[in-house]
Amino acid sequence: MAQTAVAGETEAATQVALAVNNIEVVYDEVILVLRGVSLEVGKGALVTLLGANGAGKSTALKAISGLLKTEDGEVTRGTIALNGERIDHLAPETIVRRGLFQVMEGRRIVEDMTPIENLRLGAYTRRDSEIGADIEMVFSYFPRLKERTGLAGYLSGGEQQMLAIGRALMARPQLMLLDEPSMGLSPLLVNEVFAIIRQLNRDLGITMLLVEQNARMALRCADYGYIMESGKIVLDGSAAELSNNEDVKEFYLGGGEQRKSFKNLKSYKRRKRWL
């Protein structure tokens, strides 16, 4: 069963950047937050992970990037593989060196440093001589950052988000995890940030896993999407499929109001690949 499935997928597997297999995450050794989550991100793809508050989206990203280990969280079951190699046991700093970089929820820039210092920090794992050129490259994507020479803590929310993304670019990641980049931004800025994310994905070929509350925007720029509820993936499909799905329209894109949750829907059994 699983054997044959894997054998049949070897061709495709070489194209898989990130494979999360049936992971379970527990906080403080008792609080079970993820209950068997599986997802896959193809090389060069832009995949979105949607879900309501508290569904476990950030937890999933932190499990992947290893930052869970800094919060008393633990992956108690399942595996996570980057380019076919398991990374679930690695320290977060090692995972960054493997080319996976998480832009955490709430920007988390270093407030008592200037934007340029933040960008140089992003390149901490690099030792090459192109760091200066890459700072200019980031400024070409986010021109307004260049004019800000004060402390990053005084930047506006949108500028801080741009700095957070720019800082991630400085690490030259293959795979970027973005946790709610639209949080707290005005509609106009949301558009701008999403356009840049899409552009980075296309221009630089950076694979992206994008967690969002703003399902409409996320589905507009993503190739594929997963929907999470109470620590489980309840639905997945191409962005077009999801956008046209009646229930997604209803719960995430605004619309009818008959059902309260996917949990009540028998028809949305997750495709069982690992059983």
Partner: peptide
């Protein structure tokens, strides 16, 4: 210096530092 910046980041927030690839 690269190390000095990394130490400041660590002082600012250890989780942020680790997310940047710094070994705390």
């Amino acid at each position: 210096s690269r190390l000095g910046l990394a130490m400041r980041a660590t002082a600012f927030n250890q989780q942020v530092a680790q997310s940047l690839g710094i070994s705390v």
